Computed example of a mutant assay.
Amino acid sequence: MEPNELEDRDRTRRYVLAGIVVALGVLTAGILLEVLGTILFALTAAYVLIPVQKWLVRRGFTEWTGAVGATVVGFVVVVAVFSPIAATLYFRLDEIIGFLEAIPPEVPITAFDVTYTVDVAEVQGLAIDFLTTSAIALASSLPVLAIKFALFVILLFALVLKGEAAARAAVAPVPHEYRDVVYALAKRARETLYAIYVLQLATSVVTLIIAYPLFWALGYDIPFTLALLAAILQFVPIIGPSLLIVPIAIYHVVAGELVAAVLVAVLGIALVAWFPDVGVRPRLARRSAGLPGSLYFVGFTGGLFTLGAIGIVVGPLIVAVFVEAVDLLADEVNDDTDVSDLLEPDLEHGDRGDELVTDTEASYEESPSRAADD
């Protein structure tokens, strides 16, 4: 058999196997639909923790113990992030509801000597119902959440341990001339996940550390709960903790406490909403994808509304990979062509049009009828 025929047969075999893997993957995803969010969370977390495992291996750990160490790091981080949220809903629910109930049902707003009354009772009721329903749902789903968390830890360990082999298997069917595209997309995905997990998490931790003493010093009854909400809102791009600070300031204005409103607005925006982005983010952003805030916001909101909580990660990730694919296509089509070079044909066409107009005017001026009219 000719070498070319053997090569074509091997390539066809790889494509067939890749098609089988994709088909089985789709079938598996349909069967595991209820835990698909957990699987995606484990996949993205493992992608970030694989460098931790490699760092441990370089320090003398084996592949297996390094994977255990990286999994422990992921386990501790997840527990540290989600346990305060669950504890707040369980132990501080009455205080949060009491704070919401203390808001006046009607808010008078005066503008141009005209007073308008805003009815906030309906929004107040919706917020209280949402918190109550969320707490009940959390309590009733604790056994399922425990099983999903155990699945997450097991998957995380397996993916960290065998991540390199899985990556090689995924890239193997791709022709060599297209592997640079795969590597570019993988690099953008890694940078985006670093920005979401490491950079956003560090910014949220700093927000919590700053917000708690601030709210305590300002005399709030639930300073830790408010600080935790500010830290969670740090994951919301662009607006972030301002979603918490602004309503609190408005509440003080409505209650006639102008000094408290100014203090919480100025100090909250400057220290809680602004300083973590300025003080922490630039120091950690060198390995991030540099995705514009507007696109990050689109991915965040779209993923959240479409996929739920896991969409907070998957949405920006998909947008970032899409942007990278567009950049690759633009580089492939335009190469090193400048914008002026792309517009040059239009400019030449415009020059020819001007020349045509000039020639027409000259011919008109030189025509016998034009001379007779003059």
Rank of each mutant, 00 (worst) to 15 (best):
T133F: 09
Q234P: 01
V253I: 15
Y183P: 00
I154A: 14
V236R: 02
L156Q: 14
S141C: 10
I250G: 12
A166H: 02
A260K: 04
Y183H: 07
V153D: 08
R188S: 02
S204N: 01
A260C: 06
F224M: 11
Y178Q: 15
R190A: 15
L201R: 02
V253A: 13
V153I: 14
R188L: 03
V198L: 04
P173I: 07
I210L: 15
L229W: 06
A184M: 06
F224R: 00
V246D: 07
V160L: 02
P237V: 06
G219I: 01
A202T: 09
A231K: 06
L226N: 04
L243Y: 14
G240H: 09
A146S: 09
S242C: 11
I239H: 03
F149K: 03
D221H: 07
A227I: 11
R188M: 09
A255R: 05
S134L: 15
F149N: 04
I232N: 10
Y212R: 12
A139K: 15
A249E: 11
A230S: 13
T203C: 14
G219T: 01
E257L: 06
I147A: 13
L226V: 08
V174L: 11
K148I: 06
L263W: 12
A146I: 15
R179M: 11
A202W: 05
I232P: 00
A261W: 00
A211S: 10
L161Q: 10
V171F: 03
A255D: 12
V153M: 07
L233F: 12
P175G: 13
V171R: 15
V182P: 03
L159W: 02
A169V: 05
L226P: 02
I209M: 14
T225S: 11
I245Y: 02
A261V: 05
L185R: 00
A195D: 12
I250Q: 01
L193E: 00
E257W: 00
Q234E: 13
L263I: 11
A227Y: 09
Y220M: 04
L263D: 10
V181N: 05
A150F: 15
A231L: 05
I210N: 07
G240E: 10
V171C: 04
A169D: 09
W216P: 08
V253L: 15
H252G: 09
D180F: 13
A195Q: 11
R190Q: 06
I222Q: 07
R188A: 03
